[in-house]
Design a binder for these strands. Structure first.
Lengths: 132, 132
DNA sequence: CATTATTCCTATCCGCTAGATAGGTAAGAC
DNA sequence: GTCTTACCTATCTAGCGGATAGGAATAATG
């Protein structure tokens, strides 16, 4: 059970952007505030923009802002935006793997794990996390 | 959220061994039955033995057997045996990471995710999964 | 309108670890 | 002693984490 650096960084960056809503925040500012390698962060921000979670603007005083309200974005949305599926087993989405023999029942365990994770991340919005 | 190949293989191997309890099962038999690379599986079996989940025996008619009853081994036990901590974020155990600024609340989310996963894997025994 | 500074965007390269493989060593049964 | 099997070590490969360099778009300024 492993949460990748890419996923962790993505949620932290989204929270930092949400805290400044609706103002634009520069990638360099996010990198410094959350201690994230800038170039790596830029690739993550690109994924978040393509997934429709962020809006970007170039030029002087450019930066990133939330594409919709912080109350309408969950942690699960962010995880799926940068990682594809919420949960994977050996790189494959949970539930697509074919088990056989004594391991047939294992598939249901991984599915149950995924549902348990969904129960947490799909009910935590960025707005809730920002109200410390 | 990733389940590594190592973890998936470990649980499948344990289920295959449990199905033959209390007879010894050879590593090559496990590899063929569950379609796991033999050499990779041998390293996993070594971890499971060192963690006290398996008992091994060398020589002719050697192999592996459960160290305790299948009713007393959970999926969580196996996951922890091969992966160290049940859940990690960027390679660090959940709860040990230090967040700051707008991301302070994120730690509690990952902790909640870990507890949700524990609720599943720590209540599924090998015996339950073998009774299909 | 052209220039320029700023910023997002893209492509490429490097180190590390997991996944996977092959070969050699030690222990138990006959 | 010989065979079989677990056990250990070394090696190869692909992908993630991270760094560097440059290109493309935007807005301010003269």
């Amino acid at each position: 059970m492993y949460v990748s650096a890419r996923t962790d960084y993505a949620v932290r960056a989204m929270l930092a952007v949400a805290a400044e809503h609706p103002h634009l925040v520069k990638a360099a500012t996010l990198a410094a505030a959350q201690d994230i390698p800038l170039s790596f962060l830029q690739g993550i921000l690109l994924d978040l923009r393509r997934s429709g979670l962020l809006h970007s603007h170039r030029g002087v005083d450019g930066g990133y802002a939330l594409a919709r309200a912080a109350t309408e974005i969950t942690v699960g949305d962010v995880v799926r935006a940068v990682g594809g599926a919420l949960t994977t087993v050996r790189g494959m989405p949970t539930g697509t793997t074919a088990y056989r023999g004594a391991a047939i029942g294992l598939r249901d365990v991984w599915v149950a794990v995924e549902e348990a994770i969904e129960g947490v991340v799909d009910h935590r919005t960025l707005a809730q996390l920002n109200n410390i």
